[in-house]
Design a binder for these strands. Structure first.
Length: 355
DNA sequence: TAAACGTGGAG
DNA sequence: TCTCCAAGTTT
């Protein structure tokens, strides 16, 4: 016989814990401050935090807030500048959708974010999690916020042994039953803080948990083993070339990648397709004395490993490339590149410096 | 529905 | 070195 959980008691103990232990972030308002977070800051942080750690997000969030202080400023921003500011954070569709969303909010909602889950869900880049998070955190609506942390906490609290992702609907139902009418924003953030600190993926510190007496996985000695997941597919290895050319005046030969797909909309070096099995033929983007840089890029994306052979050349002042464009040295910042392209640049820089 | 979509830190 | 995976969304 399993006794029903006392939701009211769980809610109360969680908020008590949060009032004392809430983490501090630049996008967050402390509990009990009586203030409500700026919806723009909540939205921006939630988009950045999708599948991304708080440590990685923090400097990007600060930079975006300093440069584009509200949704109207962001809506008016140059696409290339926003993509450059996002460079290194990954999942670049988020940046493309961020701009789309800012422009919809500015043009169709008078520069104010909708305060309802259903309206938020219609905006580009906002899915079920983010719509609920904004509704709860920015507008204190009792939306059911379910991210990876909440799934893990629910799986352990209720000892759900079905593996993810199949268990998602059940875990969401558990989360829904626990969502309070009062302080739903703090409740959501408390649940995520609990998952990020106490109820961690590895080595959870159950003795510090406000729910230790209620947690069925802890009782069963299974907390760390949950949630289970279906095994992931092995990543194949893809091979390719990049060509990094510098003109006599210092300008670099770059290209803007297509607006969709991998690294879509980002700056990058001209190169080959990336294929499995063997290296494709190297086709330099401009005439010149190309040579191997002597090291290759190793990089892992979500669904494949990549090795890139790096080719470098010094190009003449009258170089007429078949693809790409020359970016003056003064306008080129390696930090504007996605990480894989920055790795290639670091290899090329050393090779060219050795000339 | 399942695959595509980045990156860096932790163990 | 290598696997896991973090505040998910889109197609």
């Amino acid at each position: 016989m399993r006794y029903p959980m006392d939701e009211a008691a769980l809610q109360a103990r969680l908020l008590e814990w949060y009032d004392v232990n809430a983490r501090s972030f630049p996008w967050r308002v402390p509990p009990g401050s009586g203030r409500r977070a700026d919806p723009y800051a909540v939205w921006l942080s939630e988009i950045m935090l999708q599948q991304t750690t708080t440590a990685a997000v923090r400097p990007y969030f600060e930079a975006f807030m300093a440069r584009w202080q509200d949704v109207n400023a962001l809506a008016a921003a140059d696409d290339g500048e926003v993509m450059a500011a996002w460079a290194g954070l990954g999942y670049y569709a988020r940046a493309r959708n961020l701009l789309k969303c800012a422009r919809v909010v500015a043009q169709e909602h008078g520069g104010r974010f909708p305060d309802q889950y259903d309206a938020l869900l219609k905006l580009p880049g906002i899915g079920p999690y983010t719509a609920a998070a904004i509704a709860a955190i920015a507008f204190d609506r009792p939306a059911v916020v379910v991210d990876g942390n909440v799934e893990r906490v629910m799986a352990r609290l209720h000892c759900v042994e079905d593996p993810l992702p199949d268990a998602k609907p059940l875990l969401k139902a558990h989360a829904a039953r626990l969502t309070p009418r009062k302080r739903p924003g703090d409740h959501a953030q408390a649940l995520m803080d609990l998952g990020a600190t106490i109820c961690a993926v590895k080595s959870p510190t159950c003795p510090l948990c406000p729910w230790q007496a209620d947690c069925r996985a802890r009782t069963a000695g299974m907390a760390e083993a949950l949630p289970r997941r279906v095994a992931k597919a092995v990543k194949p290895l893809r091979l390719g070339h990049v060509h990094i050319g510098q003109r006599a005046d210092g300008a670099w030969l770059l290209e803007r990648r297509p607006p969709r797909g991998l690294l879509g909309g980002m700056l990058g070096w001209p190169g080959s397709e990336w294929q499995e099995g063997e290296f494709p033929d190297a086709q330099p983007p401009a005439k010149g004395r190309w040579r191997c840089a002597g090291a290759e890029v190793r990089h892992t994306f979500t669904h494949f490993h990549l090795r890139l052979m790096v080719h470098v050349a010094r190009l003449p002042a009258d170089s007429a490339p078949a693809r790409g464009f020359f970016l003056p040295a003064a306008d080129f910042r390696p930090s504007d590149l996605p990480s894989v392209m920055r790795k290639a640049f670091n290899i090329a820089r050393k090779a060219l410096a050795a000339d």
